[in-house]
Write a protein that binds this DNA or RNA. Structure first.
Length: 509
RNA sequence: GCCGCGUUGGUCAAUCGGUUAAGACGCCUCCCUUUCACGGAGGAAUGACGGGUUCGACUCCCGUACGUGGUACCA
C-alpha cells in the first residue's frame, strides 16, 4: 500500500475562492485521515496571469484555515521545487518523449491560423470546431507536413507548441471516487496543447508530470476538470506511468445562492457576503474583496461549514472540530450534486462556534476589534467576563463591538422611542431618587442592585418591570444586551449615575 | 450545437428495494425572559416527469425535461 499523498494545486491569480478552500480541505482531510501527506503546489505556468502576492496570500489563507501543507514552496520536501515555474525544464523532456513515441506532435499554427480554422469549419451543427483528428491534417504541424518541412520551420525558429495526438476511436474509461465509472469517446476530445510556445507546460502536462513525480496517490479537483480528464488519463498511459496514476475525485461545484451558475468572485459583492477566505486586494485595480476572516468568521467555523457543503457524516451532528473531521471524513459520503451556497447557514455555523468557544480563547480575537473602535486600556479579566456575557448574541466576531461597547463607554445615542410613550414625571422622579440610592448600596452586585431597585419601585408604586426598559436605555442606549442589573454591576456606581443623569437631561427638554 | 456530470422541502441534506421520507438552516406559533439573544416545545414545507424491472421503488434500468460544467498556447 502506497503512502497516501494528496495535493492542492492552485494558480496564483488572485483571491482564494471558497470552492478552492474546500478542495484543499477535502484533500487535506483525506490525507490526514489516512495518515498521509498533503502537498501545496503552485501552478504558475501562465505568466500572463501571474499576480504579485497571490502565492503568499494562498499560503496565508490555508494557514488561517488550519490546512497546513506538509510540503510546499515554503516547506520544501523531497520533491522540491513546488512551483511549476521552477520546474519548467522538466516538462519539455516528457513532451519530447511523447512526440518521439508518436503520441504527440509539433504544431506551428499561429493564433491567427487557429482563429481562421475555427471560422472555416464553423457550422450551425458545430459552432466551435476543435483542433482534432478532423482538422489537424489541415493545420501546420508535424503530422501534416513532411519531415524536412518541419525541420525547416524549426531551423527558422518558428514558434511551436506540442499537442497530444488523441486516439481516433477509443472509449476512455476511468473510475472517479465520487462518481464511479466515467466514459469518454476519444474522438470527441481535442488535441490539447501540452507544451506552450514559451516552453511552459499547460496544466494538462504539468498536472500529470508533477503528480507522478510527487507520488500523488489521490487527486482532488473541481468538477470543471471532468471534461479534460480523458486527456490526463491518456497522458498517464502514454508516459508509461499507468500503474502509478492517482485515483481521481472530481468535487461537485459550489453554486450561486440564487439564479444559475457556479459561485463567482463577483457574486459576493453583489449579494453581500464574502467569497474569498481572506481579504484580497487586487494589486492592479486596487479593488478590495472582503474575506470570511475579516467579516468576522472563526476559521474553525469556516472549514466546518465548507466541510458540510458537499459532505455529510451520516449522523445528526453538524458541528465538528478539525480533528473530528479528519477522523470521520470519507469520500463515500461526498455528495455528487452541486450545492448552492447559503450565507445564512454559514453564519449559523459561526454563531455556534462563537457560543461554544471559551471566552478566553475568544479574547485575542475580540480585543483588536474593540481597540480598533477606540476602546483601549481595558482590563483583560473584565473583557473575558464581558465576552461570556454577550457571546450568545454574536453571530460574527464584529458583533462583539455593538454587543459590548456599553460595558466600556456611555451610549452615544439613546433609543428614546422605546420609552417616550410611557414616560412621565413619576418615572423621572423615580430615577432621580434611584441615582442617589445606588450610592447607598453596600454590596455591589447584581442581585443586591435588583432587590433595591424593586423595593424602590414598590415605594414609588410603579411596577418594576415598567422601569427596567428605561433603565436599560439609560445604560445601553438600546433594547438589547444582558440583564440590566448585571450591566449595572459591571460598569459600577459612578457610570450608572452618570448615564441616568445624562438620560434625564436628554429626555427632560 | 456537441460532450461530460448531476437532480429528495426555499437551502444544506439522511435513506444504500419495504420508514409515518431523518436532521439542520431559514420561516411561523408558543414557552422561558417585562430587553435582545440563548434555551425549550410545536408547525408549514420534499422524492422533476414518463416508462419499465420487482410482490414492493426516492432507491435499480431507459427516455424526457431541467440544471451545471467543458468545448483556449487559462487554470
Amino acid at each position: 500500500m502506497r503512502r497516501v499523498r494528496t495535493r492542492f494545486a492552485p494558480s496564483p491569480t488572485g483571491g482564494l475562492h471558497l470552492g478552492g478552500v474546500r478542495t484543499a480541505l477535502y484533500s487535506y482531510l483525506f490525507a490526514k485521515h489516512h495518515g498521509g501527506d498533503f502537498v501545496l503546489r503552485i501552478e504558475d505556468t501562465d505568466r500572463n496571469r501571474f499576480v504579485e502576492g497571490a502565492e503568499q496570500y494562498i499560503v496565508d489563507c490555508l494557514n488561517w484555515c488550519g490546512i497546513q501543507a506538509d510540503e510546499g514552496p515554503h516547506q520544501p520536501g523531497p520533491y522540491a521545487p513546488y512551483r511549476q515555474s521552477e520546474r519548467k525544464d522538466q516538462y519539455r523532456q516528457y513532451a519530447e518523449e511523447l512526440v518521439k513515441k508518436g503520441y504527440a506532435y509539433y504544431a506551428f499554427d499561429t493564433a491567427e491560423d487557429l482563429e481562421q480554422m475555427r471560422e472555416q469549419y464553423k457550422s450551425p451543427g458545430n459552432p466551435s470546431p476543435q483542433y482534432d483528428r478532423h482538422t489537424r491534417k489541415h493545420m501546420k504541424n508535424s503530422l501534416s507536413a513532411t519531415e524536412t518541412q518541419v525541420k525547416t520551420w524549426m531551423d527558422e525558429g518558428l514558434p511551436y507548441v506540442i499537442r497530444i495526438k488523441m486516439p481516433e476511436n477509443e472509449t476512455i474509461i476511468f473510475e472517479d471516487m465520487i462518481r464511479g465509472e466515467i466514459h469518454n469517446e476519444s474522438a470527441l476530445v481535442d488535441d490539447k496543447v501540452l507544451l506552450k510556445a514559451d516552453g511552459m507546460p499547460t496544466y494538462h502536462l504539468a498536472v500529470v508530470v508533477d503528480d507522478y513525480l510527487m507520488k500523488i496517490t489521490h487527486a482532488f479537483r473541481g468538477e470543471e476538470w471532468l471534461p479534460s480528464a480523458p486527456v490526463h488519463i491518456k497522458l498517464w498511459e502514454y508516459l508509461g506511468w499507468a500503474d502509478h496514476m492517482p485515483e481521481w475525485a472530481h468535487l461537485p461545484l459550489i453554486l450561486k445562492p440564487e439564479g444559475n451558475g457556479k459561485l463567482s468572485k463577483r457574486d459576493g459583492d453583489r449579494l453581500g457576503f464574502p467569497v474569498f477566505a481572506m481579504d484580497w486586494k487586487d494589486p492592479q485595480s486596487g479593488e478590495l474583496m472582503t474575506g470570511f476572516k475579516e467579516m468576522g468568521f472563526l476559521p474553525e467555523a469556516f472549514i466546518n461549514m465548507l466541510a458540510m457543503l458537499g459532505w455529510h457524516s451520516g449522523e445528526e451532528q453538524e458541528i465538528f472540530t478539525k480533528e473530528e473531521l479528519i477522523r470521520k471524513f470519507s469520500m463515500e459520503r461526498v455528495h455528487k450534486g452541486g450545492a448552492r451556497f447559503d450565507f445564512e447557514k454559514a453564519k449559523w455555523f459561526n454563531h455556534e462556534w462563537i457560543k461554544h468557544t471559551d471566552s478566553s480563547t475568544l479574547l485575542p480575537l475580540v480585543q483588536p476589534i474593540l481597540e480598533e473602535k477606540e476602546i483601549k486600556e481595558m482590563n483583560v479579566d473584565y473583557l473575558v467576563q464581558v465576552i461570556s456575557l454577550v457571546k450568545d448574541r454574536c453571530t460574527l466576531l464584529n458583533d462583539f463591538y455593538t454587543q459590548s461597547v456599553f460595558f466600556f463607554q456611555s451610549p452615544t445615542s439613546l433609543d428614546l422611542e422605546a420609552v417616550q410613550s410611557k414616560w412621565n414625571n413619576e418615572k423621572a422622579n423615580f430615577f432621580q431618587v434611584w441615582s442617589d440610592e445606588l450610592g447607598q448600596i453596600q454590596e455591589w452586585n447584581a442581585p443586591a442592585i435588583e432587590n433595591r431597585f424593586k423595593e424602590l419601585a414598590t415605594i414609588h408604586q410603579i411596577k418594576a418591570g415598567e422601569l427596567q426598559m428605561p433603565y436599560r436605555i439609560m445604560l445601553v442606549g438600546g433594547k438589547y444586551g444582558p440583564a440590566v442589573f448585571l450591566i449595572s454591576e459591571f460598569i459600577g456606581v459612578k457610570n450608572c449615575q452618570e448615564r441616568i443623569k445624562h438620560f434625564l437631561n436628554v429626555i427632560g427638554n
